[in-house]
């Protein structure tokens, strides 16, 4: 999404909103609601939960604005609030733990070489050809649900919301190297998951 050069920057709007300017807060809501909704949908896996998280995130942000010091970007600060709201939403649902995707990590022989034939190893690349859109969308949500929590947030922010690694680090409050490590593990597991869905061997 492109923002006109002349537009007031987020941090200036946040400062005005913190000082009680309702119109400035409304502008921030308009600017970020679609992105926060997409993030919430990907972290919770459902329309109703995404709506709750969206409302909760902006309400929390509004209440916390006086504590926003501008030490990080406004976007990182808001995404952190939204990520936490999604976490609370998931916990409140008290879901039974889904089978982890750990077992779908790549396999190697004793010498450290890939097991299997290239066609099987590359099966994940064909997931969109093998499954129709609706089924793949359902499976994708289920797959994200099965990711260990530690990796899910990093993967969703970095690879699905396409934030740069340094901003994900800011949102999660961890080092860029830790972001890369978590995203890498998530990619390996989800690649194995797609491989299985597409009929290959992880």
């Amino acid at each position: 999404m492109s923002v006109p050069v002349a537009a007031e920057d987020d941090e200036a709007l946040a400062a005005r909103a913190a000082a009680g300017d309702e119109a400035a807060f409304e502008k921030l809501v308009d600017r970020y609601q679609a992105r926060v909704y997409r993030l919430a949908f990907r972290l919770t896996g459902g329309d109703a939960d995404a709506k709750d998280v969206l409302q909760e995130a902006f309400l929390s942000a509004y209440r916390a604005l006086p504590t926003f010091r501008g030490e990080s970007r406004f976007s990182s600060w808001l995404y952190r609030i939204a990520t936490n709201a999604a976490l609370m939403n998931r916990r409140a649902r008290a879901r039974r733990p889904a089978d982890s995707l750990e077992s779908l990590l790549p396999r190697f022989d004793a010498d450290g070489r890939h097991c299997g034939e290239p066609a099987d190893i590359g099966a994940a690349s064909r997931a969109e050809e093998v499954l129709d859109r609706k089924r793949l969308a359902e499976k994708a949500r289920a797959g994200l649900d099965r990711l260990p929590e530690l990796y899910r947030d990093a993967f969703v922010l970095r690879d699905l919301q396409e934030l740069p690694t340094h901003e994900v680090a800011e949102v999660l409050g961890i080092a860029p190297a830790a972001v890369r490590q978590r995203v890498h593990r998530a990619r390996l597991m989800l690649r194995g998951y797609l491989t299985e869905l597409a009929g290959g061997k992880a």
């Binding site: 909704y37 997409r38 949908f41 990907r42 329309d47 995404a50 994940a124 997931a127 969109e128 859109r133 793949l136 969308a137 499976k139 994708a140 949500r141 797959g143 994200l144 993967f155 690879d159 699905l160 396409e162 990619r187 989800l190 690649r191 797609l194």
Partner: peptide, 11 residues
Amino acid sequence: TPEILRRATLA
């Protein structure tokens, strides 16, 4: 993998 999942989870 990320590209496929990005498209499949777009809302």
